[in-house]
Design a protein around this nucleic acid. Structure first.
Lengths: 343, 343
DNA sequence: CTGAAAGCGCTAACAG
DNA sequence: CTGTTAGCGCTTTCAG
């Protein structure tokens, strides 16, 4: 590992001069600049960002805390975030917590110890004490939260209007004549679950459709839980004619259950998902879903983060996205064939 | 940000003593230990790993270079790698290159500058000059390659026997009576593509089945390319009765094409994938595929990496995994219905 | 068992 | 325009 000292010796200048030309800070004559650059090339010098970080108190790295990269929503999100961060010169520490608050706390400590310049959280729990504690202990550290709400804390939030999204999904189903619509939710502690359930109820109430408690389920954001719960739902005597899944992943599970039970989508069962992840177009029939603008969200997250780091002032910024319905092939008007009696 | 100095003052000891008790190095009396720990707690001290890194020349971080986290194979792999690394106290810098060598080179430099303790590459190109250059410039840096072969370089390799895997896939298809079997490959510069194609030819030759050049395609490891090429293949007059896809992702594209063309899997078309990713069980019918032991590979990668870092000696270690056929629902004997004339 | 001191590699005043 | 110097926060001999 060659250091700045050796470069200085090779170029016959002082280390500060080397530092200057490499950082393009301060004045340096063309001639010395050239000498330095030549020495750098000759020795194949690669400056140590860790030493620089120590001085500048800037590591040029960000922590990204998500539940699980295997979940398609987070891999899509992580990709844009990493891309954007990289284009601003930042690297990303990837942290998978499985929504485990203990694990999350450990990661937070580690990230702080490693001197990250900011932390991005995606989909925190509703009652996430770690974030509150983090902000209390390190009020200066820029934080952006994707899909969480902490009105009392000075941190940045990127949210999507889940209630609105769910409402749009439900209105679509109701417009198609469905009345027996089930909701398969995710964790009861997540914003996404809670708010999408609110949108579900809102639309139903608005149309005066009574809510059937048996049709409302909260479980996990996994394919497996979509499968399990759809199996149960679709084997009832009064099975629903439509299912609104809290996420595309859950919808994938619903498809699997329907296929096993020989229930055709969309003829015998309409389904709408949420996220418009990669899955939506892969499924057959292609999934009608609510589009969460993942790329835009990731982009904004980094923009806000970078701005916060550069300006060194901690303010609260909130950006809200409105999701839209993407109509594909998984829904159908009930008169056109959808019926619980058709099996 | 409270420093070790303040802790020392609070505990009324020297900073070296604080360092000692925090690192559990050297002797310290129970009493001073307690004093220090109390001060740490009181001040909510969090040691700076970047300062420590500078002294110890160990950042406790690893670089992970992959093509794209959105690709299910890499998100599955990344998850195990991150988990395992974390359990050894390491963090991961995630780097997506899209197989762009220029981008890869930039990431490598950045990782070096940030002082990573090792770099893990997944699925490098066959002719990856960056890795050679890296090893020349930093022979001491531990490197592990997943799915690549650099016999001349002193680095660790985790490989799966792709030829064997493809051979098993093909034998399965041939045993079912198929003769018109297409191969949809990925990038021609990737080991996976090349070797799986070798296995394809090997099996065909062994059974004396002539190879139809029209049935062999190389493109990308994307769903989209599976789709595009299957569309073409399946609209030929002499369309294949089976398709061996180079990866599960590509198989997903094949499914999509088949569905659009109203070709039933497995009755009219058998398909086998490769990887046994999350997709395999999601698809309907569930995909018969070759299982790449992703978790085991990730685990071994970290084990070897950690060992290399700890022992500070650079040796070449190679581990080979044999993939196996996982029979599910996407293949069928040709007599039982599979026929190119049945459309 | 504990403290003083040197120094990791770099940056940033401050002189010159 | 360039060199000297003082640290950044920590670990680690080396004395005591």
């Amino acid at each position: 590992m060659v250091t700045i000292k050796e470069v200085a010796k090779e170029a016959k200048v002082s280390i500060s001069t080397v530092s200057r030309v490499l950082n393009k800070s301060g004045y340096t004559s063309e001639k010395t600049k050239e000498k330095v650059l030549n020495a750098v090339k000759k020795l194949n010098y690669q400056g140590s960002l860790v030493a620089a970080a120590m001085k500048k108190k800037q590591t040029l790295t960000l922590g990204l805390i998500i539940p699980d990269i295997k979940n398609i929503f987070y891999s899509d999100l992580t990709r844009t975030i990493e891309d954007r961060a990289n284009s601003h010169g930042f690297n990303i520490f990837l942290c998978n917590t499985d929504n485990n608050l203990q694990k999350e706390a450990e990661y937070i400590h580690l990230l702080i110890a490693k001197g990250v310049d900011g932390i991005i959280f995606s989909s925190p729990e509703v009652d996430d004490g770690n974030i509150k504690e983090l902000k209390e202990n390190y009020p200066e550290l820029p934080v952006v939260i994707l899909g969480g709400k902490f009105p009392k804390l000075i941190l940045n939030e990127i949210v999507v209007d889940n209630v609105d999204g769910a409402y749009k999904a439900m209105r679509h189903l109701l417009d198609l004549g469905h009345k027996d619509i089930a909701f398969i939710g995710g964790d009861l502690e997540s914003y996404a679950s809670i708010e999408r359930h609110q949108g579900y109820k809102l639309a139903l109430n608005e149309r005066g459709v009574p809510i059937n408690d048996d049709y409302v389920i909260f479980d996990k954001f996994y394919i497996q839980s979509g499968y399990k719960n759809a199996m149960r739902l679709l084997q009832k005597n009064d099975r629903p004619t439509a299912i609104f899944a809290v996420s595309d992943s859950v919808a994938v599970g619903v498809y699997k259950a329907a296929r096993e039970l020989n229930i055709r989508i969309p003829e015998q069962l309409s389904v709408v998902g949420f996220d418009d992840s990669q899955y939506a177009e892969i499924l057959s029939p292609m999934l009608t879903t609510i589009r969460t603008p993942i790329n835009e969200m990731g982009q904004r997250a980094i923009e806000i983060m970078v701005k916060a780091i550069k300006e060194k002032q901690i303010i609260k910024e909130t950006v809200l996205f409105y999701p839209n319905l993407i109509e594909r092939e998984s829904t159908m008007a009930i008169e056109a064939g959808n019926s619980k009696r058709m099996t």
